[in-house]
Design a protein around this nucleic acid. Structure first.
Lengths: 226, 226
DNA sequence: GACTCACTAGAGTATATACTCTAATAATAC
DNA sequence: GTATTATTAGAGTATATACTCTAGTGAGTC
């Protein structure tokens, strides 16, 4: 593997693990057993590394959220979207953590992220539209649909931050992909009132699969670590 | 005013304005025209300053979210809770921005914030319960109510971060309290499906007051700065 | 074998950051 | 007044951080 790619991979790994703020270019170089000079041969600065990682993330999510327009949407599609988005969120979880600082220090990223958000919101809204077309949820006016999409976005993008703070008593390493996906339970909660009678039971059953284990709620401190 | 209090006040101001990460203890001292030594006479370290600010924030929100148990809840109460919580969020807005890092570097804060979150979630859930008792929303099972409360919490605590990133093309100084309160529109969106017929119109009218101006959605870049 | 060029090592630098130390001054207690 | 305590200034320090500079190495080309 090329050094440049190794730098990106290691950076992502370290960022996710320790948070971007706690990872210096020297750490990255040391982790790869290369010299800082070598790192700076491949990237002008730390921001450039982060920007490239963002581009990967963006590409991944854009790929996941590509809505096929030639056929109706199914419940499986919806599940796939939710699962995929949370997968992506997990793989690039450092990103939303330090988002504001990152955007403050990189113009390009700021603009690109803004466009990215708008694309995601449009996709979520389109998904709602197609779910209505498929008779899974009741159709809603555009106004409400876009406000709902925004709420979905807020829940999705901040679910992990919530988990981290709720689990704050333990090691951060305790966070697992499974727990992260309990966010799906929260997203489906938003949909409940809009479900059609025909699909209500099926979606509720789906939601049940992601329900957080009881002890997570009543005594988060006692949760066992993986 | 005592130096100690001035330090807390200036710190909060600078943190809110530039983000905790971009504000050093030397900046704070310089801003107050006192020496760094003076600052460190009053506080052992930066974390201590942040912790004290958190205690103020916590006190404020706890005060706001004190639910009177001796009478029924009104729509005005609900409005008050929403307005107050967003006021608090605005006054201590640096806090949620760098939350994860802050919790990572301060044990006390981690534990206290966790308890704080749980208290807030309980309060939100209690508000829903009392809104149902007052006939404003339909009563819900506890399960659903707590999932809804969590969604409300996610929307509230992350509304500002969203605004910041959505407005990312402009100066961050553009963010106003008014815009922040459009978060109330989003929270009320969550309630819509649960409103009783008796109150539906009134709540929808209330929600309308917080609706974001059209241009904010369609062309955020063109929004005029205060 | 000379040359190029992508790549790498590693020492080095300017600056910043959190924090300390000493000495002095103002406020208060007795 | 004197002693004590609270407060402040300001120079200083150890460390970290992002990044630079110079001097290469090794693989391929002609």
């Amino acid at each position: 593997m090329k050094t440049r790619d190794k730098i990106l991979l290691s950076s992502l790994e370290l960022f996710n693990e320790r948070g971007e703020r706690n990872v210096t270019t020297n750490h990255i170089a040391a982790h790869l057993a290369i010299s800082p000079g070598n790192l700076y041969y491949h990237f002008r600065n730390k921001s450039d590394i982060i920007y490239e990682i963002f581009l990967e993330y963006e590409k991944l999510v854009d790929f996941y959220l590509d809505i096929p327009e030639d056929r109706a949407m199914t419940l499986d599609d919806m599940t796939f979207y939710l699962e995929s988005v949370f997968d992506g969120l997990w793989s690039y979880r450092f990103f939303h953590r330090d988002l504001e600082y990152l955007l403050d220090s990189d113009q390009r990223l700021r603009q690109d992220y803004r466009d990215f958000t708008n694309r995601c919101l449009a996709s979520i809204s389109r998904i709602f539209e197609k779910l209505a077309e498929a008779g899974i949820i009741e159709p809603q006016e555009e106004d409400l649909r876009s406000a709902m999409s925004l709420n979905v976005w807020l829940v999705i993008t901040n679910w992990m931050a919530f988990l981290k703070t709720a689990h704050a008593a333990e090691e951060s390493a305790c966070l697992t992909l499974t727990e992260l996906k309990q966010g799906i339970y929260q997203v489906l909660t938003l949909e409940i009132p809009y479900l059609t009678p025909a699909y209500r039971e099926r979606v509720m059953a789906l939601r049940e699969k992601y329900r957080p284990a009881l002890h997570d709620r009543e005594d988060p401190g006692a949760a066992a670590c993986k």
